[in-house]
Amino acid sequence: MEPGPLTAGTVRPGGRTAKVRTAVLRAAQDELVERGFHRLTMEQVAGRAGIGKTTIYRRWGTRARLVTDLMGELAARSFPPPGTDAGSIEDVLLANARSVLAAINDPHFGATLQAVIAAATSDEGAAAALHAFYDRRITEWAKVVDAAVEGGELPPGTDGAELVRAVSAPLYYRLMVLRQPVDETTAARSAARALIAARAGAFVAC
């Protein structure tokens, strides 16, 4: 299941430094959900976390770097891809679609994603944070797809990362552009259509 709000113990242990980071990232996520990226301030995060703002500025420096750290932590805790022995490519792509579905429909995590996605259209710092999040997720899922290519389930040269993107793109389009609900049926159709295209060679790297 995708991560909801950060809570004590969800970030790797490591003494006071780790506890401070947990408190700050939790506060940053809450502020992001409530206020959006552009109205998030280091002072508000400091007050919410109960941490001196000088500590936050010294460690993160800018709002963009703080949100990038938050998104990196969420990526590390988000729904992991199955192993390379996860079954058929149909199973893998459906699992990927369902992981996206879980992410965007989670009340807190989904709201966090939407806030950063919206900000990324006009802010380079937010865009960098979003890219870091998705680069990590796509890279991990692409490894599983690449294993299916090596096993002969898809044409040689199929770009696993592009196929993973093709599964999730329609779901985010519905959510962010059309503002339509995304459900299990939508996720399954997206995975099935991407698979048809992949088998036809649409994702073979040129």
Rank of each mutant, 00 (worst) to 15 (best):
P3F: 04
P5S: 10
A8D: 03
G9P: 15
G9H: 00
R12G: 03
A18Y: 01
K19L: 13
R26K: 10
A28G: 11
Q29R: 11
D30T: 09
L32P: 04
R35L: 08
H38C: 04
R39P: 00
L40K: 05
T41P: 01
E43N: 04
A49T: 00
G50Q: 05
K53P: 00
R58F: 00
R59H: 15
R59T: 15
W60M: 04
W60P: 00
G61W: 01
L66Q: 01
V67F: 00
V67E: 03
M71L: 15
E73F: 01
A75Q: 13
R77P: 01
R77D: 03
S78R: 14
P81W: 14
P81D: 15
G83I: 01
T84L: 13
A86V: 10
A86Q: 12
A86P: 11
S88I: 05
I89N: 09
E90S: 07
A95C: 09
L101W: 00
A103K: 09
A103F: 10
A111M: 05
A115D: 11
V116D: 14
V116M: 12
I117H: 15
A118G: 06
A119N: 10
A120C: 09
D123M: 04
E124I: 08
A126G: 05
A127P: 03
A129H: 05
F133H: 14
R137S: 11
I138P: 14
T139P: 02
A142Q: 11
K143G: 08
K143S: 13
G151C: 08
G152I: 05
E153Y: 07
P155F: 01
T158A: 13
T158Y: 10
D159W: 14
G160L: 03
E162P: 06
V164I: 15
A166Y: 00
Y173Q: 06
Y173N: 02
M176W: 02
V177G: 01
V177E: 05
L178H: 03
R179P: 06
R179W: 09
P181C: 09
E184I: 02
T185M: 05
A192G: 06
R193K: 11
A194R: 13
A202V: 05
A205F: 04
A205L: 09
